[in-house]
Amino acid sequence: MTSEMNIELDEVLQPPMANGEVIFEEPWQGRVFGMAVALSRAEVFMWSEFQQSLIDVVGDWDRWAAARQADEIGTYQYYEHFSKALNKLLVEKSLLSEQDYSTRVAEFSARPHGHDHSH
């Protein structure tokens, strides 16, 4: 395929997600996803390590849900698990302290309503 054709194809296929769907329902989901990929690209951890952490977190949820009635379970929130898997891996690697994290979450939660988020 010539490069000219590549350019044409790119134009024809705009917007790119027309063949898919919106990939992040909330901006924070994109941030968490972006953090995990950027950390793996920076070789802070290997992608396979993150994947194992995600498999563990999702597996815990699957087992929890299997032991309950449908109406007790609630909606499955994939990016909550994704986020938990990232925190878990960073704590395991001593790159994040749970104490620092809880403190920071508490600080940010205490901001006055209407605070302008940085993203």
Binding site: R31, S83, F108, S109
Partner: peptide, 9 residues
Amino acid sequence: AAIRAEALE
């Protein structure tokens, strides 16, 4: 969830 993500970042 957004606050947690922002805190981590």
